Simulated assay, not measured.
Amino acid sequence: MTNLYFVRHAHSTYTPDEIGRPLSALGLADAEIITQMLINENINRVISSPYKRAIQTVQGVAEFFGKEIEIVHDFKERTLSDKPLEDFNSAIAKVWADESYSWEGGESNILAQARGVKATMNVLEKYADENIVIGTHGNLMVLIMKHFDKQFGFRFWQELAMPDIYKLTFDKIKLVEVNRVWH
């Protein structure tokens, strides 16, 4: 069995710099809790989105297990639009209601999901039978989960915590079980 621990990043301090946005003080404290929650999980690898907030969220886990963080660009958050949208909530609801819709310069759910699933399949094939932490983002994480189990969708995304951790257990590339680790 392969266990993927998808870690939605902790709270960040807003800056327009999407890639370099750091964790807030609360986010840094939560990242320490994440490390404590995963120290008994025998982690073999730590992978992350290239975004600073995702890296910072899983950095303690990597340090505890003596692992380098492998950056996988396809675990970055979905691009909603290439310019600021007036109402984020209605903008995100629209792309979830119509999976092929995308805002100008943004990714549809279909495109973002395909990118995330491809990255996930690569991890499953490359690191079979390992325990892998993946630092990522809420929207992309749920799109990946939805590919394997249709029960995960917009409402599930709305109820995620920040941070959050879901352990997906696979037999080869077949999802067998999903467990929430964060509480």
Rank of each mutant, 00 (worst) to 15 (best):
F6D: 04
W157Q: 05
H9W: 08
Y127Q: 06
R155K: 11
P84Y: 13
K118D: 04
H137V: 02
H137D: 02
G138H: 01
G153I: 06
K167H: 10
G116K: 05
S12M: 11
R115L: 06
P84H: 12
A54M: 00
E99W: 09
V123D: 01
Q151V: 14
V61H: 14
N89V: 06
V133Q: 04
E63C: 01
D30Y: 14
G60H: 13
G20E: 09
S100M: 03
A25K: 12
L23Q: 07
I71P: 05
V176H: 14
L168H: 02
V178Q: 12
A54S: 05
K146T: 05
Q59V: 03
I144W: 00
K126W: 09
V176P: 00
W157H: 09
L23G: 13
G135A: 11
I71W: 00
S102W: 04
I110F: 10
F6R: 09
G60N: 13
L168S: 05
R180E: 08
E41A: 12
F152A: 13
G66W: 14
L38Q: 14
V181Y: 14
A119R: 08
V61K: 12
Y14L: 07
S12H: 14
N179H: 14
E32Y: 13
A97W: 04
K118P: 01
A128N: 13
F65C: 07
F154C: 01
K118V: 03
F75Q: 09
V142W: 10
L85E: 03
E99Y: 07
R21F: 06
D164R: 00
L124C: 05
E130T: 02
E86W: 05
V176D: 15
E86L: 08
L80C: 08
L4R: 06
K174M: 09
V176Y: 07
A119N: 03
H9E: 07
M141R: 09
N109L: 09
N139Y: 06
G27Y: 05
V58W: 05
A62E: 07
H11P: 12
A25F: 03
V176M: 15
I132N: 01
P50W: 00
K150Q: 15
G138C: 02
R53S: 03
M141Y: 07
S12F: 09
A31D: 08
L143Y: 04
N40E: 15
L23E: 10
M121H: 13
K174F: 11
E41W: 12
V178I: 14
H183P: 10
V46C: 03
E159T: 13
Y101R: 07
D17C: 06
L168Q: 07
S24F: 04
A62F: 09
Y127G: 01
F65I: 12
K118L: 06
P163F: 02
M37K: 15
F64R: 08
S102C: 10
A10F: 15
D171L: 06
S100F: 09
Y5H: 13
V72K: 02
Y127P: 00
E70Q: 15
S81N: 07
E159A: 13
A119I: 07
P163I: 00
T13F: 11
F152I: 14
A31E: 10
T136L: 05
E32S: 12
I92Q: 06
K67E: 01
V61I: 14
T136R: 06
R115G: 01
S12L: 11
A161K: 15
H147R: 11
A10Q: 15
R8C: 12
S108H: 00
I39Y: 14
N122W: 12
M121I: 14
L38D: 12
K167E: 13
